[in-house]
Design a protein around this nucleic acid. Structure first.
Lengths: 129, 129
DNA sequence: ATAGGTGTTATAGTCCACATATAACAGTTT
DNA sequence: AAACTGTTATATGTGGACTATAACACCTAT
């Protein structure tokens, strides 16, 4: 279902959000698809239902998924775009982290190499956009 | 002394660590220099001494500064290198964040642009290393 | 030696995000 | 009716960050 690490510094509900966003981005979950129910995820992962609900509620408020009482949660139309948009908006934080490296004297080439490395792991040559 | 934002998501003691590292990296604080005392920082910033101590203690354990009981804290020899080394080791986390952008379909060119933007703000043309 | 600065330790308490535990209520499907 | 679904409410536990206060020990200058 989802891969949860209770010991990670990242909260469980954020881990769920990240993974579901990834599933949507990769097309594993498409608009209209029903996603795993709160109780099903809770049972299979051992995580409290309230924690799952917190993740789903957050995604719902972002318009990525949509709750249908009695039926379940479903991937929204345009979910992929909503996710990308949110990520773009959240890029400022990353920029700050990179700027900090700059101020500390880390050469730009090292950061470029880091980006290449990160992208190389996944795309292995082909650009994504 | 230090610029503290109690409302920031980043803990106060980490804010102090970051700023002191920056001062060392830029040469504002050089090896042998005495840094602001725990009590002085506490008084001027309104932050509890224990919080300052937590920041200084962490930097001490990293070998960036050195405590001399009765006299104060002093910047260690090779502090700059220790900081850079620690940052390099902590780069894996950033790599993970960038990889996440890749998986979500953010084009590599966008990330390159982000790096350029971040470095452009500070270096404005000249490479740092 | 006294005073005033320094780091250091100890204890206790507050606050808040995260996660849990449990239960109950309501809607949908079969 | 049964078995799912989401939803809400209340209470509890845990851990990190921060505060409050006090005391102890060290160094230096007067």
């Amino acid at each position: 279902m989802y891969t949860i690490d209770p010991l990670a510094r990242k909260p469980i509900y954020e881990q769920i959000i990240d993974q579901l966003e990834l599933f949507v981005a990769t097309g594993a979950f498409k608009p209209g698809d029903r996603i795993p129910s709160v109780r099903a995820v809770s049972t299979s992962s051992g995580v409290n239902p309230m924690t799952i609900l917190k993740a789903y509620g957050e995604l719902d408020s972002r318009g990525v998924i949509c709750s249908v009482p009695g039926r379940g949660y479903f991937v929204s139309e345009g979910a992929k775009e909503k996710i990308a948009e949110a990520k773009i908006n959240g890029l400022g934080e990353l920029r700050g982290q990179i700027a900090a490296l700059c101020r500390l004297g880390i050469p730009k080439s090292s950061v470029y190499a880091l980006v290449d490395e990160a992208y190389g792991e996944i795309t292995a040559g082909g650009d994504t956009l």
